[in-house]
Write a protein that binds this DNA or RNA. Structure first.
Lengths: 179, 179
DNA sequence: CGCAAATAGTTTCCGTGTCAACTATAATAT
DNA sequence: ATATTATAGTTGACACGGAAACTATTTGCG
C-alpha cells in the first residue's frame, strides 16, 4: 500500500497538491485517482482554515469586552437590524438555532439586549439592543475594525471589492442549500 | 441614546449596512461615526460566517467516517506532506498547538497515523499515515470533494480561480501576522 | 562547562457549539 | 371544533476548542 504520486514542481498546501516530497515511487494501484485537482475542495479547505484562524483572532479581540466573536456578531446584527427574531438572525448569520438561543440568553444576562414577544405570534421573540448594549457594541466594533484592517492589509482595494462580492455569492448559495 | 443612522436603499447584512429598518430618526450624538463602510471588517465578518457554516457542513460529511473536519484536515495534510512534525502542521493548517496535539492523539488511537521520534531532535515527533489511515482518507476525501462541488456550484470557473488566489494571499498574511 | 532561554509537545480547566429531544404556539386539515 | 402538522425557541448531554500552565528536550551564552 503506497501512494499514487505525480511528481511535479513545488506546490502549496491543499487537497490535491502536485508534489509529495517523500515516497516518490508509486507502488499502489490507483483505486481512486487523486481528484484531478479538485479546486472546489481546495477552496472549502482554505475557507475553513481562514475561518478558524479568524475566529481565534477575533475572539481575543472581543474577549477584551467580555464577549465572544459570535456574541458580538449577534449583538451587531441586532443593533443594525432593529427588532429581529431569532429565526431571522439564524438565517442572516447562518447560525444554528440552539446555539443562537444560548447566545441570546447570555446577551440577555449581560443586559445588552432586550426581548419582547412578537405581536401576532407569541412563539416569536423580537430582540433589540439596550443602551448598555449599544455602548459595548461601539467599543467592540472599533477594536474589531482595527484588527480587520490589520488582517486584511495585504489586500489591494480592488481585491477587497472582489472578495466581498464572491463571499456574498457564497453566502447566498449556503443559505439556499443549507440543510 | 439612539443610533446614528444613514437612510439609504435596501442593503445586505454586514458591519456597516446603509439602512437600518427601524428607528429612522437619529436622536443620538455620533460619538463614533459608524466606520465609513469598513470594508475590511465586512470581509472578516463574512469569512467567519462562511467558515462556521462550512465547518458544520463538512463535519457532518466527515462524521460518516468517524472523523471531524479538523481531524480529516490533519490526516489529509499528513498523507500529502509525508512525515511531518506537529509544529509544521500547525503552521500549515493555522491550528492551535494544543488542539493539534489532541487531534493527533485521537488519530493515533484510531491507528490512522504513526508516530516516530525525529532523528536529531528528540523533542520533535514525525507523523505519517498508516495503510488504514490512507484507506479512510480516500473515502472521506471523495465525500468531501463531492460536497465541496455542491457548495461551490454557484461559482464560475474564473471565480474559482480568483477565490483561490485571494485566499492563498490571506493565508500568507495570517501566517506572518499570526500572534 | 553550566545555567538561562527557547522550542516541541502535553495536560488541565472551562466555556461553548452541536445534535437530538422537548415545549409551546400557530397553521392546516378533517 | 378537534386533531395533525409545522414552526419558534429551549434544554440536556456530550465532546471539542482554546488559553494558560506544565514537561522535556535543545540551544545559546557567559
Amino acid at each position: 500500500m503506497r501512494l499514487l504520486v505525480e511528481m511535479e514542481t513545488k506546490s502549496d498546501v491543499g487537497f490535491t497538491p502536485r508534489m509529495k516530497p517523500k515516497k516518490p515511487k508509486n507502488t499502489r494501484t490507483p483505486k481512486r485517482k487523486p481528484g484531478p485537482s479538485d479546486k472546489e475542495a481546495q477552496i472549502v479547505q482554505r475557507l475553513l482554515k481562514c475561518g478558524q484562524f479568524l475566529q481565534r483572532e477575533t475572539n481575543t479581540v472581543c474577549r477584551q469586552f467580555g464577549l465572544k466573536q459570535q456574541q458580538f456578531s449577534v449583538l451587531n446584527e441586532i443593533v443594525w437590524q432593529g427588532p429581529i427574531s431569532q429565526k431571522a438572525l439564524c438565517e442572516r448569520l447562518l447560525f444554528e438555532k440552539s446555539n443562537l438561543s444560548k447566545i441570546v440568553k447570555i446577551l440577555l444576562e449581560k443586559k445588552l439586549i432586550r426581548v419582547a414577544v412578537a405581536p401576532g405570534d407569541r412563539r416569536m421573540t423580537l430582540l433589540s439592543e439596550t443602551p448598555k448594549g449599544v455602548a459595548l457594541w461601539e467599543d467592540c466594533l472599533q477594536a474589531f475594525n482595527q484588527v480587520s484592517n490589520r488582517l486584511m492589509s495585504l489586500l489591494a482595494d480592488d481585491e477587497v471589492a472582489g472578495v466581498t462580492r464572491l463571499l456574498k455569492k457564497l453566502e447566498k448559495a449556503f443559505k439556499s442549500q443549507g440543510r
